[in-house]
Design a binder for these strands. Structure first.
Lengths: 196, 196, 196, 196
DNA sequence: AATTAATCGAGACGGTACGTCGGGTCTTTAC
DNA sequence: GTAAAGACCCGACGTACCGTCTCGATTAATT
């Protein structure tokens, strides 16, 4: 059908694939991004070094694959009854993601690496990780009439207004308590209304 | 005067110091942060390798020193007549800083590295680079009565609300045009009023 | 007939066998022994890698098989009318073999590898490649009474006296012209007479 | 005087140099040439890997340096009173060298590698290791009138006649006892006289 | 004809050495 | 005592080959 070789030769080992993805998650927590090398990823996964290189070019690619799907699930917040509560729910999920989740730690590491390596910037550009969580919230706000339809456009600033403050605090090492989160949600709602 | 040897032996070479700081700026632009090594910093500066290590422990420290003073000057925006125009002036300066200035590139690189290396996170925490630019704006808003006095507190979210959206867009590679900047300024003003 | 499975299942592919032996010869000429790997032997032969390993354990074994029979034929020199001319004929064949023949190149490579790997030394010891060519010459000299009967014994030095000089020159990269060959033949005859 | 930088920077460590040469000798005996890698040479010598590569390109170069001087000393046999006894002394030294000496083992390994790698063949061609031992013997024979003066020429076959048989036996794993050595000496003397 | 079993080409698997590069330290001479 | 030069030991890089394994597909002799 598609490829030239549908099933010639030994098939890829699913065991090795998941072992690598798990190893990356573990190492990010245990030793941090900088000390995480292709060598010890392979060792931690109990996998040959070449097997890692065969499927991923860099540790950023592995981390990205390990991050994306988890991010989608963890950022899918409960819809609220009002726009403000909807936003509050999302910001709570986002704060949790950024400060606690392994996938969030991977995202922060990747966003950091993207500042050093254009290839990683391109990689991150392929999936709008936080936008995928934020856009449903914005769409519901548009549907309620609380936000102009331009706010969910491709390059709209609405996503940045929504997630930017929390991301900035996460990257600078600040933590955000529940009270501040509610304040931020109210402020963001006000801000977004102004963008409509 | 004070310690055992205040000025015995050859004094530190000012020539070497500025050569290193300039070399770091040049290399960040020419080859990027990742490809910038202590070795080629020393070579570009025409300086011995040990001379670099004698005064800075890591390339992040050099970059930080090269970045801070420029940042202070470049982020000192013109006070506007109203809070909204004041904020607009600041956001314009911030956008310029993040997207164009060498010091801004250094800041982004350092913020990225801080996600990988706790020591760099601590280093960045010693000077609130963007906050130093944002706080005068917020203070003037408080003075005008447009913002509650709590907004300029130590750990207040106001700074994050002000700079977060633009920082997020800069880190994810998005550019922000003048029109969007004005929208953001208006939205931020609204948002901040809500925090008061 | 004999073992558990005399001829059940698919029989060994003769096509694959000769393809491998030819590939080894070609590669030895094209890229040399060191750059000749089991991987590119299989590729050059258009054969699976496992198929090579199924029948030969090392590239030395393949080369040995490819070498032995050719060596026997190429070293079977024309008997001369006198011992000196007999020896001269043999030395001419030997010089040709060592310097020009693919089988000779294989022999030199194997003799070289035997210095690094005891298993190859054992392998080479199973067939006295040059001795098989030299012994008929020596036997005829014994029959003529030009040489004592001990010279064709198992561990006699006569073979070494006969082939050693040319082998040494071949291994050290020296070439030997026709005039020198005749001198060597006369000298060897003299030398062998002395061993009787 | 000579080079552009007579003594700038840290000087080469003599300790490291001899440690590497000794490590190579030890490893050749302990594990053999094939299993002797640049990696374990460095480890055995207690030296960084880069330090090895800084001064030698291949393990063959190291072995060559470790071999040459020892070879000169070990092959410098006692002059005998007659040409036959002179040759006998040399052949005894040569047999000892080839079968027992570490330097001889190195020589055999290098001669083997030269069959696989043209660069090693060139390297070996720079110093006529065995010839340096054999030529004095031949020269004395010429002086005695037992050998024509052409025998000590650049490309003369006399050296090969002298050392070839023993080298061939050494490379093929044969050992040569004292009785055979004396026979070989007498035969070689006869053979060389014929070359005069 | 159907079954059985060893072969075939292909290619992924876990390992390990390669030669290079950057890390941070040290040891020289020159200033 | 700093500066410039450069060698030191260390370890990760990405590549290549090792020898083994697991596939689907052949290919004959045996049922």
């Amino acid at each position: 059908m598609t490829a030239g070789s549908p099933s010639v030769g030994r098939p890829r080992s699913e065991r090795a694939r998941v072992a690598v993805l798990h190893a990356v998650d573990d190492l990010l927590v245990d030793v941090g991004y900088a000390a995480m090398t292709m060598k010890n990823i392979a060792e931690r996964a109990g996998v040959g070094r070449q097997t890692v290189y065969r499927w991923w070019a860099t540790k950023a690619e592995i981390l990205f694959e390990a991050c994306v799907e988890d991010a989608g699930r963890e950022l899918a917040s409960e819809p609220g009854t009002t726009t403000v509560s909807d936003i509050a729910n999302f910001l709570a999920a986002l704060a949790e993601f950024l400060s606690t989740s392994p996938a969030g730690a991977a995202y922060r590491a990747l966003l950091g690496e993207a500042q050093h390596d254009p290839a990683v910037a391109v990689l991150l550009g392929t999936v709008d990780v936080l936008g995928l969580g934020a856009r449903p919230v914005l769409q519901r706000a548009v549907d309620r009439g609380d936000l102009g339809p331009g706010a969910v456009g491709e390059d709209a600033v609405a996503v940045a207004v929504l997630v930017g403050p929390l991301v900035y605090r996460a990257l600078t090492g600040a933590t955000t308590d529940a009270v501040s989160l509610d304040e931020l949600a109210a402020a963001a709602a006000e801000s977004l209304r102004r963008l409509g």
